[in-house]
């Protein structure tokens, strides 16, 4: 199973992206997307923003669950109180696990946000952040 994670800023700008695979069922943590799909991933996720913007005003929860799909890929979304969107492209439905993943990711993101050298909507280039996200992925997905 493969995943694609994107953090998108309040102005549609890309903050962070990562594609990874599961460690369960003998996976090695790398994504198994075909080249075609891998190229399309950012665009698929971007197109889901349309749906998020519609749903976020009718749903008070931060975790919007599965909001969109592209053939057999599902897209889950999490909107922070600062209107930063976390989007995850995945293949099977697992709302609860993904919620936990998003909550912990939010934790990581807020820690980054508190850094005096980071401002809102800026891209995250920190290696440590990258490492920690991968740890989270390994833990939950």
């Amino acid at each position: 199973m493969s995943f694609y994670l994107a953090i998108i800023g309040s102005k549609d700008n890309a903050i962070y992206s990562l594609d990874f695979g599961t460690y369960r069922q003998g996976g090695d943590g790398t994504s198994k997307f075909s080249a075609d799909v891998r190229q399309l991933c950012p665009f698929i996720v971007h197109s889901s923003l349309d749906i998020i913007e519609e749903v976020q005003w009718t749903n008070s929860a931060m975790h919007l669950k599965v909001i969109d799909k592209f053939y057999n890929y599902l897209i889950s979304a999490y909107v922070t109180s600062g209107n930063i969107k976390f989007l995850l492209l995945h293949e099977t439905r697992a709302d609860e696990v993904i919620r936990q993943f998003f909550v912990d990711l939010y934790d990581l993101y807020v820690k980054t946000l508190m850094s005096p050298f980071y401002s809102v909507d800026q891209a995250i280039t920190s290696k440590v952040f990258d490492q920690r996200v991968k740890m989270l992925a390994k833990k939950y997905l």
Partner: peptide, 17 residues
């Protein structure tokens, strides 16, 4: 909240995705 003005994306966004 969700302002989508297209011209204000941060320059550092380049390279991601």
């Amino acid at each position: 909240m969700a302002s989508n003005s297209p011209h204000s994306s941060s320059p550092d966004g380049r390279g991601f995705f």
